[in-house]
Simulated assay, not measured.
Amino acid sequence: MLDFDPQYSTPRIEAIGRFIDKHYALARPVSCRMLQRGLNDVYLVTASNGERYVFRLSHHRSRGRADVRTETAFLTHLRGAGVPVAAPVPTRDGALFVQGEAPEGPREGVLFQEVSGRDPSPTDAGDARANGRTLALMHYAAQTFSSEGAVYRLDLEHLLHRPHAQIRDSGLIEDADVLSDLESIAARTARAIEAYQNLTWIYCHGDCHGFNARINDAGEAVFFDFDDGGPGYLAYDLSVFLWAKVSFGRSLTPMWTAFIDGYRAIRPITPHDFEAALRFVIVRHFWLMGEYASRANEWGSNTVGWIAREAAFLNAWEAENFADRLF
C-alpha cells in the first residue's frame, strides 16, 4: 500500500517504450524522449527504421477524463475529408487509442505520426493566414461529423463558469476586490454572449492559438493537439487565436486580421460570430486561469500565482472594446 496517494505520476521512459512496443506495430526497437510534461505528457518516439511519431499520454484534469474516443474519431473524419491534421496511428488491433494503468488511475494514450514542417512564426502574416484557412477547412468538414456521445461541450459552463469557480475556490486570490472584479467581469461577459442571437455551433479545435500546427512545404498549417476540442461556439474557436495575440502584454492584432482573411477565403463568418469572438477573448482567459488554478496542488502556488494579476488585462480588454456596452 502506498503511503501517499499520487495525484500525478511520471512513467519511466523505458516503460513508455515497452508500452508502445506492446500496442503498436512499429519497427523495433523504439526509442523515446519526453518532449513536455504538463497538461499532458508528450513523447517523441523513433522507430528503428527512422520513422518518427509523437505519443501523448493524457493527464487527469479537473474536467474529468480525456475524451479520446471522440477526438480520434474527429481526426479520422478530418483526414478523410482532406483537412491537414495529425491523424492517430492505429494499434495492432485497429484501435485509435490505448489505456494504461498508472498509480493515480487509468490514463489514455494516442500515437500520432510526427508532423513535418516548421513551427509557425508569431509575427508572420502568411502563417496566420494558413492557420485561418485550416481552421475554416476543419469547420467545413465538421458539418458532416456527428459529435453524438462527446463527453464535453464547449459552452459557457465548461469555458467560463466552471473555470471561474476554480479560480474563486483555489485560495490563490486573497484580495476581495480582485475576486469581486472577476465575478463582475464573468457575469457581464456571460450576459453579453447569451444576448447574441444564433451564434454558430460547430465541432471546435478548442486550442487554435497559432502554435498547435506545423507549416509544411506547401505552406499549409497542419493542425494537432485537439484534446481540448468538442462541440461548441465557433466564435470561441476563432477567439483563441485573437487571445493569443493580445494577452500577456502582446500587441499583434495584424496577425488576427491575417488569420481572419485566411479563414474568410474558405468560409464566411457571420457578423454575430465575428463580434462575439471579442467577448470570447475574456472567456478564453478565464478558461486558462481556471486550468492553472485547478493545478495549484500539483504545480504549486508559486507557479500559478500569476492569475491573481489578470483582472487588469480583462478590465482593459473590456474598456477598449466594450466601453459603451458595459452593464
Rank of each mutant, 00 (worst) to 15 (best):
D93T: 15
E157I: 02
L111A: 09
W256M: 01
A218P: 01
E104P: 09
I20V: 15
P163Y: 09
G262S: 01
W287N: 12
L156T: 01
D67H: 11
S147K: 01
F97P: 00
G100V: 14
W287Y: 14
V85L: 08
Y43I: 06
V85S: 09
G82R: 11
I173A: 08
V178P: 00
L154I: 06
E174G: 15
I16E: 03
L160Q: 05
L288W: 04
T46F: 05
T303E: 08
V98I: 15
G82H: 08
A323Q: 04
H60L: 13
S147V: 10
E194Q: 14
H77N: 04
R79F: 06
F241A: 05
N40V: 07
T257Q: 07
G300M: 02
A142Y: 12
A244H: 15
R12E: 12
V240D: 01
H272Y: 00
W243T: 00
V281S: 02
L314H: 02
A87K: 05
R52K: 10
G132E: 00
E194A: 14
A150G: 12
V304C: 00
E51V: 13
S62N: 06
F241S: 04
R153V: 10
W317C: 09
E114L: 14
F223K: 03
W299F: 11
S58E: 08
Y140I: 11
L288V: 14
G38M: 05
S121N: 10
A150T: 13
A125M: 13
A15Q: 13
H77V: 04
R52I: 06
S146T: 11
V240L: 04
G210A: 14
T10V: 15
R69T: 10
L137I: 03
E157S: 11
G290H: 12
L35A: 11
S294L: 03
A102K: 01
Q113P: 15
M138V: 02
F74R: 03
R168W: 01
Y24R: 11
L326R: 09
D119V: 13
F280V: 02
A81S: 13
A186W: 05
V281K: 05
A87L: 06
G105T: 07
A66P: 09
H139Y: 12
T270N: 05
A27I: 03
L238D: 03
A176E: 11
R264E: 14
K245L: 02
T189A: 12
P231K: 08
E101Y: 03
R63T: 12
W256V: 12
D324E: 15
R63E: 08
S247C: 15
D237I: 06
G109V: 08
A86Q: 10
I167S: 08
T10C: 09
D177F: 10
R65Y: 00
E318G: 10
E275S: 14
H161K: 13
G94M: 06
P120F: 05
A176S: 13
V98G: 14
L137R: 15
V89L: 07
H161C: 04
A258C: 03
N297G: 15
F313Q: 01
E14G: 11
A192R: 14
D237F: 12
P106T: 11
F97V: 00
H164K: 08
T303F: 08
V283E: 01
P122R: 10
Q7P: 02
A244F: 07
A25I: 00
A195S: 14
G132D: 06
T76R: 15
E220R: 13
R63N: 06
L135P: 02
D237S: 10
G206R: 05
A165I: 03
S146Y: 07
G229H: 10
A136D: 04
